[in-house]
């Protein structure tokens, strides 16, 4: 997994609530048996018309260089498909900002080096209003609107932060505790 410490980037605003994982990557594009290549179908039915033409009104087609997606409340609800996180990272996103994340999506994002940053509803509105670059500092757990200097702290578990900063994943940690697992099985299973 890629390491993450700090990022300064323009935003791609998606001011909609309840963006579900079926929108992030529709089920018909889940047929691959690898983790790669899902970015081209990210937000497929919002990005493209049914004839396959670019929908010029959609945020991803208007702004092309932002690595921070900013979306409304309850982002990533619905299906547990990790393909949603793969599609976002494959497209080039490194951070998703919202006022609320669905649980499974949040876990999937963290397991793929995609940082979910939960901010207050007011701060989210300030981001949308400013349309400015953001600075996301994982070490200090802060997110700053560069144009206005407004800043907010965000929460992340110490363990997950350690994983992201060092580019480690959960399996390494679990495998290092195999003896404990076998002991647990002897007593419980």
């Amino acid at each position: 997994m890629e390491k993450f410490t700090k990022l300064i980037s323009p935003i791609v605003p998606l001011p909609l609530q309840n963006v579900d994982t079926d929108q992030i990557i529709p089920a018909r594009f889940l047929k691959s048996t690898s983790r790669e290549g899902f970015g081209k179908n990210l937000f497929r039915d919002w990005r493209f018309t049914k004839e396959g033409k670019k929908n010029n009104d959609f945020a991803l087609n208007k702004i092309t260089e932002g690595e921070i997606l900013v979306a409304g409340k309850n982002f990533g609800c619905g299906s547990s498909r990790e393909h949603a996180a793969w599609a976002l990272t494959d497209y080039g996103f490194k951070v998703v900002v919202s006022s609320f994340f669905a649980d499974i999506f949040k876990g999937n994002a963290l397991n793929n080096g995609l940082l979910p940053v939960r901010v207050s509803e007011e701060f989210l509105q300030s981001i949308f209003n400013s349309n400015s670059q953001l600075e996301v500092d994982l070490e200090n757990q802060t997110i700053k609107i560069l144009a206005t200097g407004q800043q907010e702290k965000f929460e992340i578990s110490a363990y997950k932060k350690h994983c992201l900063v060092n580019g480690l994943d959960d399996i390494d940690f679990l495998l290092s505790n195999k003896k404990e697992i076998e002991k647990f099985e002897l007593n419980n299973v």
Binding site: S79, R81, N108, I171, L175, I181
Partner: peptide, 30 residues
């Protein structure tokens, strides 16, 4: 690896959906 794993909770079990990285965790370590 499916969000509707919650179905099995009807039997008084802890059942939940996971992502593919977590499927790999269970494969490797249960």
């Amino acid at each position: 690896g499916d969000s509707h794993t919650s179905t099995h909770g009807a039997f008084g079990s802890i059942a939940f959906g996971i992502g593919t990285s977590e499927v790999e965790q269970v494969f490797a370590t249960q």
